[in-house]
Design a binder for these strands. Structure first.
Length: 502
RNA sequence: AGCGAGGUAGGGUAGCCUGGAGUGCCCGCCGGGCUCAUAACCCGGAGAUCGGUGGUCCAAAUCCACCCCUCGCUACCA
């Protein structure tokens, strides 16, 4: 069985999860489940990024300890992962996972051995209030854009990573697609960034600047490893490094890193260089999604429009939220979230289209045909099955290509087709007229379409899919089964798959 | 400012590369049909100067030029 190793990025835990995080979890999970349904042995790593100054500052603001903040918020992220159905195998906490500290140290050691780490004085414009360095161009009239104060010139000796050395190598890897950057637009951005010239970057902070929070530099307790230099290592930690190198040997390299557009560079440039330097294999693909806006506006605390995915799950369920995030948010561009649109999608698409088709089919079979249906000679129904088969191929191809949004539309087309076939065939009339065989043919076809729907919907809406497959008595969600005709069904009277919202 | 992506009915999209009646899809809206089904489903309809201007061509959403608007990227900052 071929392996497939996929990761989500690890969010900072300075605040609660928002729908943007949910989007990434869902996209990642859809890809992971699709691969499972294709017969891959899939592993998925997620986690939380905790060794950052942002978290320290957030904790100070709240008047609690960093440890406390990280524990609490990490738990929230984990809880969201669980509730949204993210099928993860490892949840790495960068500040609490012993293996992870070991990984960070190992990466450091390996890069150092390659001669890519050196000490250098760093001089920059530092805003004490932000606790951040600014470049000249970021300043507004020479002042910090946030606090309108003049930044201080601060000098600090740090460790640097010799990124410049890898410019040509990265350019080639990305250009040739050895490391695939999806979508192409992002790939071009990465290329233009690399072409503009790569400079070495600082990979440590003084303990003071880091407020003593983070993983110490091996052999130099006065310095803390820069958060990104440790955070990226979670992908290795999750694969088993260093405690289970057998597992790691099987899983690494990652097949896909799913990330948001804001951190593309860290993955497509820094991470690749770090891995080359450390003598480790490179990920095969970096999959970059857009951001979620709320009712057309950027999500922000000051506007107060942050949407809590856990609230949405409690209100509408995980599958409907998953459905919405894939269907209404384009896979690679920014997309919008609105509760109104979510409700409309549930009522008209999940309830009205998919849920109704399943319900009318299964209810019909159980009330009019004793719940049993067997293979029939196919007349008109053969064409319907052929069309469905074509759509299954489409779903498969689109998912393989990462076009999650388009794939889900095709899934919905299948139930749309089922509804139309059911309607046009009017089996209820056939039953009244006493034409049993004709009615049985229609329902035999519809039962198969339901089953196929259950299979292709599984990556997107696993709970509903499993329920549905249970009703038709076919447990498997393996994609290959979607291309076969099941000959005999014993159907149970279904419960409603999705409930209408008022 | 430089580089890149995009502007198609009320919203969201496909079509553009390889010109040929504004052709399609998902919602919303209006009307009709049906009754197996969660007032659901099926059919039909209204609604677009395809960002603007000019050009090439028998013919342009599609090719070219210019302009307007939106959005991304431009390093140590999710």
């Amino acid at each position: 069985m071929p392996k497939f190793y996929i990761t989500t990025s690890i969010p900072y835990v300075n605040a609660r999860p928002h729908v943007g995080h949910a989007l990434e979890f869902v996209q990642t999970d859809v890809i992971a489940r699709y691969r499972k349904a294709k017969g891959y042995s899939v592993s998925l790593t997620t986690g939380s990024d905790e060794n950052s100054l942002t978290n320290v500052l957030a904790a100070e603001k709240l008047g609690i300890g960093v440890r406390e903040l990280c524990d609490a918020n990490s738990l929230l992220f984990r809880s969201m992962a669980d509730r949204i159905g993210l099928s993860y195998d490892a949840f790495v906490r960068t500040s609490a996972d012993k293996d992870h500290a070991a990984v960070a140290e190992a990466i450091w050691g390996r890069c150092s051995k390659s001669g890519d780490i050196y000490r250098k004085k760093y001089k920059g414009l530092y805003c004490v209030r932000c606790e951040l360095y600014y470049t000249e161009s970021e300043l507004v009239a020479g002042l910090c854009p946030e606090h309108k104060v003049k930044p201080e010139v601060v000098e600090e000796e740090n460790y640097f990573f010799r990124l410049s050395r890898y410019q040509d190598r990265i350019l080639e890897l990305v250009e040739k697609g050895t490391v695939r950057i999806t979508p192409d637009g992002r790939k071009n951005e990465v290329l233009s960034f690399v072409k503009s010239g790569l400079e070495d970057f600082s990979i440590s902070r003084s303990v003071k600047r880091a407020h003593g929070w983070g993983i110490p530099v091996p052999g130099d307790p006065s310095q803390i490893i820069y958060v990104w230099f440790d955070a990226l290592g979670t992908y290795l930690t999750g694969a088993g490094m260093p405690s289970d190198m057998k597992r790691f040997g099987k899983l690494w390299p990652a097949d896909v890193h799913v990330i948001g557009k804001g951190i593309a560079r860290f993955h497509a440039v820094y991470w690749l260089a770090m891995l080359i330097s450390a003598g480790l294999e490179l990920p095969r693909e970096i999959f970059i999604h857009g951001y979620v806006t709320i009712e057309g506006q950027k999500m922000s605390k000051s506007i107060g429009n942050v949407v809590d995915p856990i609230d949405m799950i409690e209100k509408y369920g995980a599958d409907p939220l998953r459905y919405y995030l894939i269907k209404n948010v384009s896979t690679f561009e920014d997309g919008d979230f609105s509760e109104k649109a979510l409700r409309e999608a549930i009522n008209s698409e999940l309830v009205g289209n998919l849920g109704n088709f399943v319900n009318r089919t299964l209810t019909f079979i159980s009330s009019k045909l004793d719940g049993k249906i067997e293979e029939q000679e196919l007349g008109e129904g053969a064409l319907a099955m052929k069309n469905v088969a074509g759509l299954v191929d489409d779903v498969d191809a689109l998912l393989a290509d990462g076009q999650l949004n388009a794939a889900l539309l095709k899934v919905m087309e299948i139930s749309g087709m089922g509804n139309k076939y059911f309607q046009d065939s009017e089996p209820w009339k056939l039953v009244k007229e006493g034409d049993g065989p004709a009615a049985r043919e229609v329902l035999f076809v519809c039962a198969n379409i339901c089953r196929i729907l259950g299979i292709v919907a599984w990556p997107f809406m696993p709970a509903a899919s499993e329920k549905l497959l249970g009703y038709v008595g076919c447990g498997t969600h393996n994609f290959a089964q979607a291309r076969k005709l099941v000959k005999k069904f014993a159907v149970v009277r279904p419960q409603i798959l999705f409930s209408k919202v008022e």
